[in-house]
Design a protein around this nucleic acid. Structure first.
Length: 957
RNA sequence: GCCGCGGUGGCGGAACUGGUAGACGCGCCGGUCUCAAAAACCUGUGGUGGUAACCCCACCAUGUGGGUUCGAUUCCCACCCGCGGCACCA
């Protein structure tokens, strides 16, 4: 593609300066120095896809780059790094399709991305480039996982996951998309319905039970909320995180399981076991519920438990005496629920379904017997997996009660007349408690307090908090990810040997403790490899009953830290198997290892980590980047400390990240995960103690839509390729256009016409410098207003850049150029160009330099060319200091005072600055104004408002 | 339903803690240069109305309807629309 006409020859200068910048390593951050001077500017690192840099990347990074460049010119020690979040499905899919190793594809893609970023003149410190797929990098990703495990924050559990029957692969939640489908109901009416489908092939997903590693992020739920107070994140990001975590205050209440009562309607009565007792067996004697409204306890007329609730399992294993026909029904219902996708279960439009269990419970506050139902509208994963239903005051409970003819008892008296046969009354703040024994007459807010007091006093419940946030499913059955560094030993598992870092576990660290307390324990350790005694001490082993909560972890041990990283083996085939195992399970030899505890044969974990794992700590990796690589070759002794502790002083210097620029799509997942991991590292002393959060400030960047106003995508064909754009317009014009198109946080539509505008501007800017430079021997000529305009512009551009107001900063630069340009037009409207005639203005070298410095962050190539080649200055403009303004020069000689009459603008008058702040003088002058006279004549002035130096408003009758 | 953000000319967008609404750019109208076109450059450009016309003047305009205020795009109340996120969370 040919360059557009009328634009300076950018291609040549771009090439020239790029080479020079690379050679001089212009943008390296310096570890250490004055701490107040450091400034860590972080922009989210990309996934290096085969398509190359997306225009959205160039947009975000240009903003970040301009910001970093300006701060750097202000003398800050800027850390502005870049790297690659390179594990991921597209690369793996490409590998599956073509048989090319993902490592090779990644290399190719990152090379391309790097080339494009350098072309865009992003001032990254390339010496700190990192790549999450580099073994030297993921060694520490694995190390972090091991620390999580050692502190009891990782466990293994059978989880229901999404399974694509076509791709034969387990899908992460992010890999499942919602799709609207239309189905026909009985009356041939079309209903829209959402189903979960596989992101890649569109096949509806199924549910499968798979053993997964889970990370207990929920343990940090409170801190993830409360920690936000210390940060300077923009409001919407904080809100998104708080929302996602979803903390609710309430109470947990225990409902004993009993039998039927007078309370239950006729139809239900018939279904209930009639002996009325003896239904309770074994350990399950009560069902605990979580409620945010303990004040409505007296209105609980039935209970509903989730299909996954343990009581259901007990029922089905005939622990309770329930008719077998009923059991069958329950079994059917539960089976159906299990096969439903999350989305189907969550479909609000659908009618609620459920079955009666045949069991009753006792409402502990009023001793009434209430039936227990099973329904899939109750989620096993939230609260306790069981609810008390208060149909009078909850719409879901109400719908359920109506459908199954269950009693509805109001406990809050509505303020207006209300028909409980029609609707639930959910206006919970208003009204008075009724039918609620000791709570009667209270307002609901007081009643909540009182109810909790009663619960705690009678020991039937207590205050409790519940979260929407779920624990983090950490296993992926994919090839292209970090191997989870765990080993499973069947023999040890049989003996119930578990790694367990509890207080008891620590006792075992001493060799005395290893002499073991009982013969039972002695027996368990009998076959242990004594050579591993040290290791055992290190591992903090403990023997546990395999049916204890740690039972699922019996036999699972982390790979010894000295053996990290567990490298991803090179394989021929990347396809997953039908069994839902990772392709690593098929690599012969790789999975077979020695048990680090008993020395016997053991198996590696073959699942890999989710994408988020590598990006959890990448901002730390940049700080450590130089160390990361040097450790690669060294064999570490098992006693050596970890990289974080060794390099504490560098981390101390750079952390926290001063500003983190990223997309809203990461507000809940990446941002939350990485904050969690940071807080965890903080707890184990791996990162500095003075600030418990990784990022000080977070701002969101905007999105650029295609020219059609739609999200850019291959299928829509509206993708903008940055390579093509800079070939046409030049990098500087592209950069300025991207920043000029709209506010940095906004949603913008690609509009090629506007590119013309900034290209024109750059050309004019160049002309201004050329004209004056041509007459550098002559004394400078400017008018008296020029310095005012220049100083104003310096101030405006500076403050705009600090606030990411790139579009307005550019507007003010344009204004300045227009001002100079217009002054160079002679009376015949002829432009004085580089003829022999001097321009109206000849700017001094000093002022030309200030102009060029102002534009340097935006247009680094042109600025360098003008600085070095036109002005003949020393390389490089990007190492100059940011221009300052003289505040005394900002004020013009004359002030324009706005004169209003009754708040309406009637005139503007120019007044000397010396008296513009003098109310009486201004009034006098305004009254003299002929226009104003017209409005004041014959009127009585009641009041005069005066904004000093700016505005005057006469209020007349 | 809940949370967040937004609604300003033909278009993208400006407007500091309430104080000249429409900066800057695109587009468009007219002009300069040219054989012509492109490029470049200059002028004008929210709407309606008044005057033969210019200067000018008046009125109406920031999603809708109210309110507070000398004065509201900005603050308050109610609503409408759009975008993004979450969503049977007890």
């Amino acid at each position: 593609m040919k360059a557009k006409k009328g634009i300076y020859r950018f291609a040549a200068i771009e090439e020239k300066w790029q080479k020079r910048w690379r050679k001089d390593n212009l943008y390296q951050a310096v570890d250490f120095g004055k701490r107040a001077n450091k400034f860590y500017t972080l922009v989210e690192f990309p996934y290096p896809s085969g398509e190359g840099l997306h225009i959205g990347h160039t947009f975000t990074m240009t903003g970040a780059d301009i910001y970093a460049r300006k701060k750097r010119m202000e003398g800050k020690n800027i850390l502005f790094p870049m790297g690659w979040d390179a594990f991921g499905l597209p690369t793996e899919n490409y590998a599956v399709r073509t048989g090319t190793q993902p490592q090779i594809v990644t290399k190719k893609n990152t090379d391309n991305f790097r080339r494009q970023m350098k072309k865009m003149a992003f001032s990254f410190d390339w010496s700190r480039e990192i790549n999450t797929t580099d073994p030297a990098y993921y060694k520490w990703t694995q190390w972090i996982f091991i620390q999580l495990f050692k502190r009891g924050l990782a466990y293994k559990k059978a989880m229901s996951i999404n399974w694509c029957p076509s791709c034969k692969i387990g899908l992460a939640n992010e890999e499942v998309i919602k799709e609207k489908i239309k189905t026909k109901s009985g009356k041939a009416r079309e209903i829209e319905k959402y189903v979960d489908v596989c992101e890649r092939c569109g096949t509806p997903v199924e549910r499968r039970q798979i053993n997964q590693w889970i990370v207990k992020i929920t343990k940090y739920a409170d801190r993830l909320i409360d920690g936000l107070e210390k940060t300077d994140f923009i409001e919407k990001v904080k809100a998104a995180q708080i929302n996602w975590i979803g903390r609710s205050q309430g109470a947990k209440v225990k409902f004993p399981i009993a039998s039927h009562s007078e309370f239950i309607s006729e139809s239900i009565l018939n279904q209930v076991q009639d002996d009325g007792k003896g239904v309770v067996q074994d350990d399950i004697e009560e069902i605990e519920v979580f409620t945010t409204r303990p004040d409505t306890l007296w209105g609980a007329t039935f209970m509903v438990i989730a299909p996954e609730h343990p009581v259901v399992a007990s029922l089905l294993s005939s622990k309770f005496k329930v008719q077998s026909s009923k059991l069958k029904k329950i079994e059917n219902y539960v089976g159906r629920a299990r096969r439903k996708s999350d989305l189907e279960r969550a479909d609000l439009a659908k009618e609620k379904t459920g079955v009666f269990t045949g069991l009753t419970a006792i409402n502990p506050v009023n001793k009434k017997k209430i039936p227990i139902w099973v329904s899939d509208f109750v989620l096993a994963s939230y609260g306790t997996g069981a609810i008390m239903a208060v149909p009078a005051h909850d719409e879901r409970d109400y719908a359920f009660a109506k459908k199954y003819n269950l009693p509805i008892i109001p406990v809050i008296e509505p303020l207006r007349s209300w028909d409980f046969n029609q609707n639930a009354y959910t206006d919970m703040e208003k009204g008075k408690m009724i039918n609620s024994g000791p709570l009667n007459g209270l307002r609901p807010n007081q009643a909540i307090k009182k109810a909790v007091e009663i619960l705690e006093e009678k020991k039937i419940g207590k205050r409790a908090v519940s979260y929407h946030l779920r624990d983090w499913i950490f296993s992926r059955q994919h090839y292209w990810g970090e191997p989870i560094p765990m080993v499973y030993c069947e023999k040890c598992a049989e003996k119930g040997i578990t790694w367990w870092d509890t207080k008891e576990g620590k006792k075992l660290q001493s060799s005395k403790a290893l002499k073991l307390k009982s013969s039972k324990q002695q027996k368990r350790f009998e076959n242990l490899n004594l050579e591993n005694l040290d290791l055992i001490r290190n591992l903090k082993l403990e023997i546990r009953n395999s049916s204890s909560p740690a039972g699922e972890l019996a036999g699972w041990f982390p790979v010894p830290e000295k053996d990290l990283p567990v490298e991803l083996p090179r394989v021929e085939k990347y396809e997953p198997t039908d069994t839902g195992e990772s392709p690593l399970a098929n690599v012969s030899g790789w999975g077979e290892v020695r048990c680090p505890v008993c020395g016997g044969p053991a198996r590696r974990e073959t699942d890999t980590m989710p994408n988020w794992a590598g990006s959890d700590w990448y901002y730390l990796a940049y700080v450590l980047a130089h160390k990361l690589n040097s450790l690669k070759s060294k064999v570490q002794s098992p006693k050596s400390k970890n990289i974080f502790v060794i390099n504490k002083n560098v981390l101390d210097y750079w952390l926290p990240v001063d500003i983190y620029i990223g997309g809203d799509e990461h507000n809940t997942l990446h941002l939350l995960y990485s904050r969690f991991i940071y807080q965890f590292l903080y707890d184990i002393g791996a990162v500095p103690k003075d600030y418990p959060e990784p990022y000080y400030k977070r701002i969101s960047h905007g999105v650029i839509l295609g020219a059609d106003g739609q999200r850019m995508s291959k299928s829509r064909g509206n993708i903008i390729n940055p390579d093509k754009k800079w070939e046409q317009w030049g990098v500087d014009a592209l950069r300025m256009y991207l920043m000029f198109i709209g506010p940095f946080e906004g949603t913008m539509v690609w509009n090629e016409n506007a590119l013309k505008g900034v290209a024109r501007f750059l050309d004019r800017f160049k002309n201004i410098v050329l004209w004056s430079a041509k007459f550098k021997e002559s004394p400078p000529v400017t008018d008296k207003d020029f310095l005012v305009v220049l100083n104003k512009t310096i101030k405006k551009v500076g403050s705009d850049l600090d606030n990411f107001g790139f579009n307005t900063a550019i507007a003010s630069l344009m204004k300045l150029v227009n001002y100079l340009y217009e002054s160079n037009i002679n009376p015949n409207n002829k432009l004085i160009t580089n003829k022999k005639v001097p321009p109206a203005f000849i700017l001094s070298k000093e002022n030309l330099e200030r102009l060029i410095k102002l534009i340097a962050p935006f247009a680094p190539y042109l600025a360098e060319e003008l600085w070095c080649e036109v002005l003949g200055n020393k390389f490089s403009v990007h190492q100059q200091t940011w221009p300052t303004y003289n505040k005394y020069l900002l004020e013009e000689k004359m002030n324009t005072i706005v004169v209003q009459v009754n708040g309406r603008l009637r005139a503007k008058i120019d007044i000397e600055r010396s008296i513009a702040n003098d109310k009486d003088a201004v009034i006098l002058r305004a009254k003299k104004n002929s226009k104003i006279k017209r409005y004041l004549v014959g009127k009585k002035i009641r009041k005069v408002f005066f904004v000093s130096g700016h505005l005057i408003n006469f209020v007349v009758e």
